[in-house]
Each structure stands twice: as structure tokens, then as C-alpha cells.
């Protein structure tokens, strides 16, 4: 398992360095670090998926002495590690460039959004291919517009209010519950991915 995690980090090292430089540029331009963090976290996560996506690479990994459970769980650990790395880079970057401490609450919220998105995307990529994600996103956006137009017209306001509520939460217990629910979602996503990958033919 450790070797698989190491492999992912080694294979992505150049990409990670490039993305971190890009991240600093965005921070320098003072774009919302929350959204920059979400976008970069998803980008590195998708890169981690696409490097192993060719069926020939699956043949290699599954012929080496690893179990399918290890292959899937290592990917989930790597993606989480990369998301934490992006938030650390934002924290350090903001401190170095603007001399300000990024609120931990903001970073936590960034990680939560990224992890939620990745929890949906990873099983999708194990079932289909990441190239279908664009199509799926367009369909999802279409559905979102439909919902906003015909069913819940104040959906945007509700989302905004929910975000506001999360960011103004004061009690530690509420935060723990929030983080726990995100982690449960992530673990469930891992279980779904493992179920998909378990019987996949290469």
C-alpha cells in the first residue's frame, strides 16, 4: 500500500510542482483562495486518476503483488493527501505573498467541497472513464438549471445560506459532526469504488 502511494506521488511530482506554481500565481492575483483551492484539489485528484487510467496500466498494477482493495484505497489516500497539500500550499502562499493567515475554517470548507466532489467523481471514473466526466458535468449542470427553473427557484439562495451557516458555526461539536460526515461520505465513496473495481475485467 505504501508503495502504491509512493508511486502516485513520484509519478505526479512534476505535475504537482507545476500546479503549485500555478496556485501561487492565482494567489498573487488575489483570486478567492477557497475556489482556487477547490479547483486545484480536483485537478490534482483527476490527474492522479488519469495516470492509471489506461487498461494496460491496470494490467500492470493487478499483476504486481497488490490486491484490488490496496489499489483503490491507495488512490483515495493519495487524493486526500494531495488535497491537504493544496490547502497547505494556500496557507503558506497567502502568508508569503499577502502576509495574512488563511482562516482554518475557510481551508476546512475548501477541503470539504473538494472531498465531496471527489467522492462523486472517483467511483464515476472507476465505473466509466474520466473523459466522460465532461459529459456528466454538462448533464448535471442541465439538471441544476432545470431544478432552479422549475422546482426550487431559490436554490442559489439556499446554498448561499447553507454556506453562511457553515462558516459561522461556532460550536466545536458542530464542526466535528461536519468533518465526520464528509469523511463518512469519502469512505462510502471508497467502498463503492472498491465494489466497482473488484469485478472489473482487464
Amino acid at each position: 500500500m505504501y508503495n502504491l502511494i509512493r508511486k502516485d506521488l513520484v509519478l505526479q511530482s512534476k505535475m504537482i510542482i507545476g500546479l503549485m506554481i500555478g496556485l501561487c500565481v492565482y494567489l498573487f492575483l488575489d483570486v478567492s483562495s477557497l475556489w482556487v483551492g477547490v479547483v486545484f484539489s480536483i485537478a490534482v485528484a483527476m490527474n492522479a486518476v488519469t495516470i492509471d487510467e489506461k487498461s494496460s496500466v491496470h494490467i500492470l498494477l493487478n499483476s504486481l503483488p497488490y490486491t484490488r482493495k490496496e489499489i483503490v484505497s491507495s488512490k483515495y489516500i493519495v487524493v486526500l493527501l494531495l488535497t491537504v497539500m493544496v490547502s497547505a500550499a494556500i496557507y503558506v502562499g497567502n502568508l508569503a505573498i499577502h502576509g495574512e493567515f488563511t482562516s482554518l475554517k475557510n481551508l476546512l470548507f475548501m477541503i470539504a467541497i473538494a472531498v465531496t466532489a471527489i467522492s462523486v467523481m472517483l467511483p464515476f471514473c472507476y465505473k466509466f472513464k474520466s473523459s466522460y466526466l465532461v459529459t456528466a458535468s454538462i448533464v448535471a449542470f442541465g439538471l441544476y438549471l432545470l431544478v432552479v427553473s422549475f422546482f426550487i427557484q431559490d436554490l442559489n439562495d439556499r446554498i448561499r445560506a447553507f454556506v453562511e451557516f457553515l462558516l459561522t458555526m461556532q460550536s466545536t461539536g458542530a464542526y466535528v459532526a461536519f468533518v465526520a460526515s464528509i469523511m463518512i461520505l469519502y469512505v462510502c465513496s471508497g467502498l463503492v469504488s472498491f465494489r466497482i473495481y473488484k469485478n472489473k475485467a482487464f
Partner: peptide, 19 residues
């Protein structure tokens, strides 16, 4: 015994399976 078996196998496929 998946890992134990694969530790003892060397494989060559007709297509390149490497990165």
C-alpha cells in the same frame, strides 16, 4: 493468497503494460 501468489510470478504481456 493473492499477494503471496503474485510475488512468485513473473509476467510478460504482448502489449507494453508499463507507464
Amino acid at each position: 493468497h493473492e499477494k503471496e501468489i503474485k510475488q512468485r510470478i513473473g509476467f510478460v504481456f504482448d502489449e507494453s503494460v508499463f507507464y
